[in-house]
Amino acid sequence: MMLFFQQWYGELLKLFARRRTYIGFGAFVALEIVILLLIKKFGMGPIQKAVVGSGESFEYYFSALTVASTVMGFSVFLLGALFLSLVAGDIVAKEGEDGHMRLLLARPVSRFRLLLLKYLTCTGYAFFLIQFLAWTSFLLGLVLRGWGGGYFAIVPEVSVVAFYDWGPGLQRYACSSLALGLSMTTVSSIAFFLSCFRIKPAAATIGALTYILVDFILRNSGFMDSYQHFLVTKHMSSWGRILSETIDWPLVWRGYSVVFAVNLTLFTLGYAVFESRDLKS
């Protein structure tokens, strides 16, 4: 087990020694600041309408948590999938293309173990990145609105609208960001699966993004209403249920069971593809 962690440390070292990894974090913070400035300038019109429409005080619920939730939502939507696909799409395909894989597999390590290390690295990274986004958004929210106030949570995908005070709101925000982190591992899993083929890293990234986008469009297009359970983004949105005042745990468990099953299937298929490949330039 110790050996496994040492090997995983090696993978993490490779990931976090790259300048691009930090540029990504920097890009997210920059995007969050831009969204925050837009909120500061233009306010939160639709949120304000929803809060006031529910008979609550917008001034109370226009808090760091509400701002953070909005900033995080936009950031994940605009950049999250792209960046996670980029990292996971690179993790096998780029190493294969560059010749690193031949260097690694000249060692007495099985392809399964090597892929497992890489898979855990890119999904772990996805989880970590979302937590980074959640808490930098929260910090920026604090800068704008300060400590305290309420938390207005709205997730239209799962029809959740909820009002919390600061303490419970903060707990829900923390739990939902953990759940969102788990959901986003599926984006990494799709890119990882494609990365196991003998393709260019960019092709794996574009393939994963295309899949998620098409899935998302189908889910929101209406004519797939009867087949929503076939769409992975439907199950990924289970994180939003954590924000509901009364959490529907069976639905949450069902959603995450599907997410984990999809992840496991993608890893297994990716491994099967990789195992069958001859590694030679």
Binding site: G10, R18, G99, L103, R107, P108, V109, S281
Partner: peptide
């Protein structure tokens, strides 16, 4: 029982030689 240079050895440019050795040796346990 084997050590190998197979085709062109491509290292991780953003790591030091020492770190490269560490990553590779960890795969041999």
């Amino acid at each position: 029982q084997i050590g190998a240079i197979y085709e062109a050895a491509v290292f991780y440019d953003y790591l030091s030689g020492w770190q490269n050795l560490r990553v590779l040796c960890s795969l041999s346990g």
